[in-house]
Design a protein around this nucleic acid. Structure first.
Length: 934
DNA sequence: GCACTCACG
DNA sequence: GACGTACGTGAGTGCC
């Protein structure tokens, strides 16, 4: 008989205030005050200790107040308006509460625009509906309204369980009536008005007498004349408002499933690290002895035969056996393969990795597949080993088609989770063999969702770096098997024994990483972004990569030819003007010609001592009449376009598909944007007419057209929403030109010049403004730039507050968040180096805006396929994403229907998770080429 | 392998 | 008083 589930919901924020006042002002070894943190830590310890005890918790979550803003502020602007600032030595302890919770490997829930009490009420309701027991760890009187059969409260300071009798004792009413009492008496701290002159005693008496609030108010006129009677009549609406304010909202959208809160045995390492850091030595000793919940080193599902280390801070999760690459199996016959497949089915999951002969997933030949079914249990299935010599004897391996046919049902089985590291690559390789892998998890994407922005030396979220970081393990290097340079061999030529060790290790490591990273998602609030956005995006992006886009080779070749001719002419003229021949492409030589030989004015720059010859410098010189500078600028543009685009793109055409297939990185940009490589199709020219010709070479197949759909000014719209700038919101709502409106507000008139300046300032705001930077861009003095910034803040109130709050949050928490919960970390935000610190501040101001924009278009991409399919538009294919733009190829006859669906999906992509206070505008164009679609 | 330059949002 | 001046990317070239 399974034990009944029992959910503990810990009201973390209220606890820390009480602990602060009750405990002495301790400090940790670094001098940070930690008295309240210590109290909080002992409380969590006590709670965790009750795991496995009768009526103890089976599930636990800590709920924290993230913002003081909620729907209550909209109802009543004075709500919580007069809260005193927390004491100086308490403030630095708030972020440590999160650290403490994490040290216990417990989930920590914080949501924007919702109060902790409401989240607690909502989870409680959810759990009760499922027949669970619920205990709320708090002594907050508002939460006492929730007490009912199956739900009690726990006051850990008094070590008392609070049931209905506690409410009766304190307020003389039942929990259901408590809200009405609270409404009458009001609350000074939260600034709930109640009725003046009525305190707890009178309120209770009235409710007991009349039953509920409305009855009290209805009975007021017939009461005997008194101050109270008048107050009740006059302030009846205040009482009703107060009732709404004190009533808990129990239908909040919840970021986690209840199952995420399952209370497992607590891994001792992170806890020990935390206790050590803050000097909680007595608890540390206790941990060494037994630890909360026995700190048993046995997360579920993992083998465990390793003795506990005496060293509390062990380098590896203790639950997994040591990695031994000689344990791996090379699968060379069908029976063995079937046994591994059966084991994967039994486990319900397997880590999968493919080995190929190329990094290009659209050209790579499949050389082998590895599987891991449990930590330490992995195999390699060679499929294409034996090199390229047709006559040489090949090692024994399963026939390719047979192995693929046997693996396919497993890889497509809905009941078996396939785990990969950068699985997008494997998805593409396998899709080319007719296997559509699902469902999936990706450890690289998990790492990105947890740790974006954290500096981890080299490697970022790559497997070797993750293995080193999380498992303390150094993977066999690819190069040690294949060599490098001229003598490098293909993976298909690597001997089977070596290939097995390498390939199976990759799968084993991936599975182990999953065991480390997967539990962190709910604990660190990354579940939402991972499950709802980035994970479902993986197959979508893989599909776009496989589609590719057609480019007209002849058109590119003609452009290359044209550019070459014009460059040759310019080159002659430049050498003529210089009086000598030199390499124009060398900034060093160019600088010496311009400044030393020709004596133009301009400064040296930076560490290398070389002259700067970038576009701003050359433009300035050209403006002063330097003919050679103008010609160098023209030459540079042509050179860039030719080498980076017209020449390079031709070489990127896939010989099999005749199209260009970029590769998107899902973890490339710290803010959550995608990045595009080999080739980068996110920086195809558009700003100049000459560059724009390159876009015309991106074409549709006969009978089809290219459709480009752009979000219009999405980042400024998001800034208007997030900073709550009424003027900007109003302008967007009315469909005004936002730069014109800004010019009007800042300069009082709209013309070309003021609009241009306004546009520059608008972008400066998004990027984290500095007077110096703006001054440089606008070519005005720093004082004048500062004056414009001041005016901007004054005309657009809210921006200033957004900037201050965002930087403050980054300083305190070390990260910022998007509206959808994506975190970006800023480890240098508190650096003593000013430049470093200020750089992080600017990035932190930008990250929530750029990141939210990335979240929105990603959500649109995830929904696009199903939406088009539902509309019967199966021939519409999504090809490219360029940050705020999606590019499609579709039959000409589908344009009208597809435009409607695409617009609908993109404009509503934030819903229902987030409702924006500005509309999202989408502009759509079509044509025979990408250039023509704009 | 780094610095510089420049293409994009 | 100096610092180093806008956010996020990837690629080609020259040079050590």
């Amino acid at each position: 008989m399974a034990q009944q589930n029992h959910l503990y919901l810990v009201d973390g924020s209220s606890y820390i205030f009480r602990a602060y006042h009750r405990l002495p002002p301790l400090t940790n070894p670094e001098g940070t005050p930690v008295g309240a943190v210590y109290g909080y830590t002992t409380m969590l310890w006590k709670l965790a200790d009750d795991l496995h005890k009768a009526d103890g918790p089976t599930h636990m979550a800590v709920i924290l107040d993230k913002s003081s803003q909620s729907f209550r502020n909209e109802l009543y602007d004075q709500y919580k308006a007069h809260r005193p600032e927390p004491p100086e030595d308490l403030r630095p302890q708030f972020p440590l509460i999160r650290d403490a919770t994490r040290a216990f490997s417990m989930p920590c829930i914080e949501e924007d625009n919702v109060e902790a009490d409401d989240i607690i009420a909502s989870y409680a309701k959810d759990a009760l509906a499922k027949g669970w027991k619920v205990t709320i760890v708090s002594s907050d009187k508002d939460l006492m309204q929730l007490i009912q059969p199956g739900l009690d409260m726990l006051d850990t300071m008094k070590n008392a369980r609070l049931g209905p009798e506690a409410v009766m004792e304190k307020f003389g009413v039942t929990p259901e009536q408590l809200g009405d009492v609270l409404a009458l008496m009001g609350d000074a701290v939260d600034n709930v008005p109640g009725i003046r002159g009525i305190g707890p005693k009178t309120a209770s008496k009235l409710i007991v007498e009349h039953g509920d609030l409305e009855s009290v108010l209805a009975a007021a006129p017939s009461m005997k004349p008194s101050k109270m009677r008048e107050s009740l009549i006059e302030q009846a609406d205040m009482a009703r408002l107060s009732k709404v304010l004190v009533t808990l909202k129990d239908d909040c959208p919840l970021p986690n499933e209840l199952d995420d809160f399952l209370l497992k045995d607590i891994p001792p390492e992170p806890l020990a690290a935390f206790l050590t850091k803050h000097g909680f030595t007595s608890l540390l000793r206790k941990l060494g002895a037994s630890g909360p919940a026995d700190a048993a080193p046995t997360p579920s599902g993992a083998a465990n035969d390793v003795p506990r280390s005496d060293n509390a801070i062990a380098p590896q999760p203790l639950s997994m056996p040591t990695i031994n690459v000689d344990d791996y199996v090379c699968v060379q016959d069908a029976e063995t393969l079937d046994a591994w497949i059966a084991k994967a089915r039994a486990e319900g999951m397997a880590a999968v990795d493919t080995e190929t002969d190329s990094l290009d997933s659209m050209q790579a030949a499949l050389v082998g597949v590895s599987l891991a079914v449990a930590p330490g249990e992995a195999c390699y299935i060679p499929l294409g080993h034996g090199g390229t010599d047709m006559f040489a004897e090949k090692p024994r391996q399963l026939p390719f088609e047979e192995a693929v046919a046997r693996l396919k049902p497993l890889l497509e089985d809905d009941a078996v989770l396939k785990i990969g590291q950068n699985l997008k690559y494997d998805l593409n390789v396998l899709a080319r063999h007719g296997i559509h892998v699902s469902p999936i998890d990706d450890t690289m994407v998990m790492s990105f969702n947890l740790d974006a922005g954290h500096e981890f030396g080299t490697g970022g979220h790559g497997m070797d770096a993750l293995a080193d970081r999380h498992l303390g393990h150094t993977c066999i290097s690819f190069k040690s098997l294949t060599g490098t340079g001229k003598k490098q061999i293909g993976f298909n030529e690597v001997p089977l024994a070596d290939a097995t060790r390498y390939a199976a290790e990759d799968a084993d490591v991936t599975l182990r990483l999953w065991h480390v990273l997967r539990p962190r998602l709910p604990i660190e609030g990354a579940t939402r972004i991972y499950q709802n956005v980035d994970r479902p995006l993986i197959p979508v992006v893989a599909g776009m990569e496989r589609e590719g886009i057609k480019v007209d080779r002849e058109q590119l070749a003609a452009l290359s030819q044209d550019f070459a001719t014009r460059m040759a002419a310019l080159e002659g003229e430049i050498h003529e003007l210089a009086g000598q021949s030199f390499s124009i492409g060398s900034p060093k030589q160019l600088g010496e010609i311009l400044f030393d030989k020709l004596g133009l004015k301009g400064g040296k720059k930076g560490k290398t001592g070389a002259y700067s010859t970038d576009v701003t410098v050359l433009e300035k010189l050209a403006g002063e009449g330097s003919e050679i500078s103008r010609k160098v600028l023209d030459w540079r543009q042509l050179s860039k376009l030719k080498s980076t685009y017209t020449d390079a793109l031709q070489e990127q055409i896939n010989p099999n598909t005749g199209r260009v297939h970029t590769s998107y990185s899902l973890v490339g940009a710290q803010t959550g944007r995608l990045s595009s490589t080999e080739p980068n199709l996110q920086n195809i020219p558009i700003r100049t007419e000459i560059g724009r010709q390159i876009r015309h070479a991106f074409v549709a197949e006969p009978g089809n057209v290219i459709l480009a759909a752009d979000y219009s000014q999405i980042e400024l719209r998001l800034a208007a929403h997030m900073a709550d700038v009424e003027t900007l919101r109003d302008a967007f709502a009315k469909g005004e030109d936002i730069h014109n409106r800004t010019a009007q507000e800042l300069f009082g008139e709209v013309n070309r010049d003021t609009r241009g300046r306004a546009k520059t300032i608008n972008f400066a705001i998004l990027y984290g403004i500095s007077r110096w930077g703006l001054a440089g861009r606008l070519e005005v003095s720093a004082d004048e730039a500062q004056a414009m910034i001041d005016t901007y803040f004054q005309r657009f109130p809210g921006i200033n507050r957004y900037i201050a709050e965002t930087v403050e949050k980054a300083r305190e928490c070390g990260f910022t968040e998007t509206l959808f919960g994506r975190k970006t970390h800023f480890p240098r935000i508190n650096s003593k180096n000013q430049a470093e610190r200020q750089g992080s501040e600017r990035a932190a101001i930008n990250a929530p805006i750029q990141g939210t924009s990335a979240d929105i278009i990603k959500r649109a991409m995830v929904r696009m396929g199903p939406a088009l399919e539902a509309a019967g538009l199966a021939h519409v294919r999504m090809l490219l994403q360029v940050h705020d733009e999606l590019v499609f190829e579709l039959p000409e006859s589908d344009v009208e229907a597809a435009s409607a669906v695409i617009r609908q999906v993109m404009e509503n992509a934030a819903e229902p998770a987030v409702t924006l206070s500005v509309p999202l505008g989408v502009e759509i164009g079509t044509g025979p080429s990408w250039g023509a679609a704009h």
